[in-house]
Design a protein around this nucleic acid. Structure first.
Lengths: 100, 100
DNA sequence: ACTATAGGTAAGTAGTCACTTGCCTATCAA
DNA sequence: TTGATAGGCAAGTGACTACTTACCTATAGT
């Protein structure tokens, strides 16, 4: 659960994808590929980006909607809001003992 | 840099260690080992914990001070404060293009 | 001095992860 | 219907990572 979230954030390319979706929401896979290549000089295959998006989606950070042959990717920042709370503000979220 | 931070947070055992140091600061290696075993049922070797602490220290999340044969570990939450800002509050931290 | 305790170093291993390659499906335009 | 575009699935590979095992150093108590 929270593990998926931290794992998703652990990769630099995925964080860059989140940056891109922050800048422009609702991008397609090809659009994201193009921007990673152009703006960030990342020589990465379409399949690799697709896999990254799957990880981000599993973590709840990206949501998708399909329209015809296009699949749009939207950012969902909700899971990010309180992930550091347990250490920054222990009183509010301490009673949590799972090794997430 | 930021990469070390996210990588450090990617492991569940390390996050549990941060939880323990949040609850009681200044613990020794053996103390942390004991608590991981007792409270969290983690059957993990001393060396493994030591390696986790090294990762956390490299990320700036843990600081150490030595006294005699004891080495105390203190939590430093400063690096955690703004790590999600780039997505939660894009206006303030967008101009950041490194693939960190 | 001897010994137990606290910690460090380093090599080896099994599993995970990012990425590629190759092929397949689906939608749309001509 | 043919071809181009957008995307999906799955096996294979190399690198990384968490963990163990084995041995070594340093401080403290008796």
């Amino acid at each position: 659960m929270a593990d998926d979230l931290f794992k998703a954030l652990a990769d630099g390319t995925r964080r860059t994808i989140l940056d891109e979706l922050t800048e422009k929401s609702g991008q397609t896979l090809f659009e994201i590929c193009a921007r990673l290549s152009m703006k960030h000089g990342l020589g990465i295959s379409r399949q690799a980006v697709s896999q990254h998006l799957a990880v981000l989606e599993a973590a709840g950070l990206v949501e998708t909607r399909r329209e015809g042959r296009y699949k749009f990717h939207d950012l969902n920042v909700a899971p990010l809001r309180h992930i550091t709370e347990r250490w920054l503000d222990p009183r509010s979220s301490e009673p949590d003992k799972d090794p997430s």
